[in-house]
Nucleic acid binder design. Structure first.
Length: 481
RNA sequence: GGCGAAGUGGCCGAGUGGUCAGGCAGAGGUCUGCAAAACCUUCUACAGCGGUUCGAGUCCGCUCUUCGCCUCCA
């Protein structure tokens, strides 16, 4: 079966073939770094992380670019609004570059905990001002841009098909609902800024042919995407809220400049909601990942995110997170049991599960179905291990290979290194546990259950849970829930 | 006003015409010194009203409700 991807451009699933055989070029809009990352960022980057992982598992070489927006954007295309990075710099009594650096590091810290693989290239907007100026010059030459008082605007009228991604193609209709008509030097209300002249006191500014100023807020993605991936790329991802105007503007700039299709597949992930309302920094209801990680294992968050589809809204609640934590623990428990179990004679064919997993992933990255397959696999494994014959070495290797491929490499939720037997730092603990379990076993043999239960309870208090199975005692470190 | 998405059982969450999603929670059972885990069995669904069809969460229409975008935002 071949990979189907839902393309926002045509609003249907399409068969995916990269432009150049074997190689996929992919760009995802990165964060604006003026605050700590929240759950919404996690959903977005975990989702695209799995896209990248699955493409790689499918044999493609993926070149993954994800930018860092470290230049403050104004809140609109006119002259209103404020630069958020600069605002944060004032609040923290430092300068914009330090703000950007600080929150960039914070972002990667959180993403690392979620096991989001780093992009191949993470270009910063401020490091690509010349490229952005070059793109503007190209648009000026071809008559798609014009300058007024040191500001440069893109002329939407000059580009046929503006708004094709979001469906906002009728510019007249778009203006009908606008509340205030702002005084503007733009030729048409839909025109958007490519370059802004800096006001006095503006901290981040660069020289340009038009003024000392800074780039417009849609420009960086087009410029950096084309620089590192070429004028036509395979996949461009981002949050749904960026379809309009951001991505429509990107398309306009890029295609007006090159005359070529900018992006072949547009992918948009949906929002995280709390009680049905979108989570957003400006709404003051966002859940900061650093706070969340204090009480919840980051991989539980990752698992929670992947239990819903990337194009669906995901509603956050503590009970939902708890349910995910319990569910993930069940999968981990099964993997642990499999790894610890001595070889037997039972035969288990994991191929049908592998097939169903692939089918789910190939169907527009349907991770909830893929995870459901893992749960069914876990149930089948447990049932097989419950039978006395156990599992043959070959059968076990087959399952382990599938868990590595599906649970670890693709979804990033079942990692062998999380199992205590594989932790390098756990050698001492292993030895201590062996001693304690021997003592407890002696107590049980002497029917001294008071002592054996005390050992068990004390260990649980220290975060280690032990279970008596028919093959002996098993123990695991409980992750914080 | 314009553009778009969605309403599934106690909760989360898949599913584009014909057997079961899956997880969590609940009930009963097997196993067990107890506990936990595991396994087996099991109860609650498809917003409403019409229509198409032999047959509809699944297609069509209408109604109601919710959400996102049209300012930065993952």
């Amino acid at each position: 079966m071949s990979l189907l991807i839902y393309n926002s451009l045509g609003r249907t699933k399409e068969k995916f073939e990269p432009l150049h055989p074997g190689i996929v070029s992919m760009y995802v809009c990165g964060p604006t770094v003026y605050g700590h990352a929240h759950l919404g960022h996690a959903k977005s980057y975990v989702s695209f992380d799995v896209v990248v992982r699955w493409l790689r598992q499918s044999g493609y070489q993926v070149k993954y670019v994800q930018n860092i927006t470290d230049v403050g954007h104004l809140t609109d295309d006119g002259d209103e609004g404020e630069d958020k990075i600069m605002k944060q710099a004032y609040l923290e009594k430092t300068d914009p570059m330090e703000i950007a650096q600080f929150y960039t590091r914070s972002f990667y810290e959180d993403m690392d905990k979620l096991l989001v693989l780093r992009p191949n290239i993470a270009p910063a907007a401020t490091a690509h001002i010349p490229e952005q100026i070059a793109l503007i010059e190209r648009l000026m030459k071809t008559g798609h841009a014009y300058e007024v008082n040191g500001n440069v605007y893109f002329s939407v009228e000059s580009f046929n098909g503006y708004g094709k991604l979001s469906g906002r193609t009728d510019q007249e209709a778009q203006q009908s609902g606008i509340r205030i008509s702002i005084r503007s030097e733009k030729r048409a209300p839909s025109d958007f800024a490519l370059w802004k002249k800096a006001d006095e006191g503006h901290l981040m500014k660069w020289n340009s042919p038009w003024s000392i100023g800074y780039p417009g807020w849609h420009l960086e993605c087009s410029a950096m995407s084309m620089k590192y991936l070429g004028e036509t790329i395979d996949i461009h991802g981002g949050g749904m809220e960026n379809k309009f105007p951001h991505h429509d503007c990107e398309i306009a700039q890029a295609e007006a400049a090159t005359g070529k299709p900018y992006v072949r597949f547009w992918m948009h992930n949906n929002m995280v909601t709390i009680n049905g309302i979108k989570m957003g920094k400006s709404l003051k209801n966002s859940i900061n990942l650093k706070d969340l990680f204090k009480e919840t294992d980051p991989l539980v968050i990752r698992f929670f995110i992947l239990q819903s589809h990337y194009r669906s809204q995901l509603d956050y609640s503590e009970t939902a997170i708890k349910a995910s934590a319990t569910g993930l623990e069940k999968l981990r428990e099964t993997q642990r049991r499999l790894l610890e179990q001595p070889p037997g004679t039972g035969v288990f064919d994991s191929a049908p599960f592998a097939h169903r997993f692939s089918e789910a992933m190939d169907d527009d990255f349907n991770t909830p179905v893929a995870i459901a397959v893992l749960f069914e696999l876990a149930k089948a494994i447990n049932a097989a291990l419950d039978r006395n014959e156990g599992l043959s070495d070959t059968s076990r290797k087959g399952i382990e290979a599938l868990l590595d491929h599906a649970g670890q490499e693709t979804l990033g939720i079942l990692n062998r290194n999380d199992q205590h037997g594989n932790k390098e730092s756990g050698k001492k603990l292993e030895e201590v546990m062996t001693i304690l379990l021997k003592l407890r076993d002696d107590a049980r043999n002497n029917k001294d259950f008071a002592l054996s239960d005390k050992i068990r309870d004390s260990l649980l208090g220290a975060g280690i849970e032990i279970k008596d199975t028919r093959d002996g005692v098993s123990w695991s470190e409980k992750s914080d829930i």
